Amino acid sequence: MRFAPDTEESLAFVVALCNTDPSASRSGADELATVDQLAALLSHFGYTGRIDHDEAELRDVHRARALLRHVWTLDRDDAVGAVNKMLRDAKALPHLVRHDSQDWHMHATEPDSPLAERIRVEAALALIDVIRMNEMDRLRICAADDCAGLLLDLSRNGLKRFCTVRCGNRMNMIAFRERRADR
C-alpha cells in the first residue's frame, strides 16, 4: 500500500507520537514527558514553523496525542466525523507549499499556528487520504498481548500485526513454546 509521501510521513509521525504514551511506550513511561523530549521527536521528523518549547505547548501536544490515538482506532465512518471536526476547529484551509528540501505538499494551517493544532491538522489531512482510499484497516493496534502500540501497515499484503520486530519475535517465541509444550 502506498500513500502520497507527505501522507506516509504524517501517519508515521502520528505512530511515533502516540507510541510515546505510557500505555504504548517500550519503557512503560511517558516518553514525551519533557519539552526536550518533544523537541527531539520534532527534530527527528523535521517539523518546521512555530515551536514554543514550553510546558503549555507540551500539554497541548499531549491532548493532541490522546485525540489522535483515539481516532486511529475508529472505524471509517466515525473517523470522518473526527477528521472533519479537527479541520473545522482549526479553520483549516488546505494549500500547497514547498519549503526546505521538500517538494510540493499540503498544509492547511499557517507556520505560526500553535504546534498541537498543526499536528492535528496534518494528521487529519493524512487521514483524509486513508479514508478516501478505504484503507482504515491499515491503521492498527499491535497484536502482541501486552502491547498497545500503534502501527501503520504499508505492506503490500496488509498483514502486518506487530508494531515492532521485538513484539513479533516475542509473540512468535510464546507461540513456539506453547506448541512445544503441547507435544
Rank of each mutant, 00 (worst) to 15 (best):
D52N: 13
A56M: 12
L159T: 14
A79C: 06
D21T: 05
A56I: 08
L93P: 15
D21Y: 02
M1R: 06
E178Y: 06
E55D: 14
L38N: 02
M86T: 02
A33G: 09
Q102E: 13
S10E: 13
R161Q: 08
S43F: 04
H70N: 14
L127R: 03
R118G: 07
R88L: 15
A144V: 01
R65D: 00
D75N: 10
R132I: 11
Y47F: 12
C167Q: 04
M1H: 10
I141A: 05
S155P: 05
S155D: 08
T109M: 05
R65H: 01
C167F: 00
L159C: 13
A12K: 13
P114N: 13
D30P: 07
A66W: 03
S155A: 08
P114L: 06
K91S: 12
K91V: 14
A64W: 00
A64M: 00
D129E: 10
L93W: 10
R88M: 14
M171N: 09
V83R: 09
P5R: 11
G49S: 04
A92T: 05
T109K: 02
R180S: 07
F45A: 10
I128V: 12
R177C: 01
D89T: 05
D36F: 01
H105D: 03
L127H: 01
L58E: 01
F45P: 13
A79D: 01
D52Y: 09
R179A: 03
R69F: 09
R98S: 14
D89A: 06
L68F: 00
R65P: 06
G81E: 08
A108D: 01
E110R: 08
R76Q: 13
L159M: 13
D89R: 06
E8C: 04
A24C: 07
I131A: 04
P94Q: 09
T48G: 12
S113T: 11
A29G: 09
K160N: 02
L38F: 01
R118Q: 05
E55Q: 14
A66G: 15
A66S: 14
M171L: 10
G149R: 13
V80A: 12
V35S: 07
H95N: 15
D36H: 08
I174S: 10
L38P: 02
E110A: 15
M86K: 02
E8P: 12
R156H: 12
F176D: 03
E31L: 02
S25P: 04
A116W: 00
E135M: 12
K85A: 15
A39F: 07
Q102P: 13
W104M: 15
R183L: 10
C167Y: 00
D36R: 12
V35Y: 00
R120L: 09
F3K: 03
E57Y: 00
H99M: 14
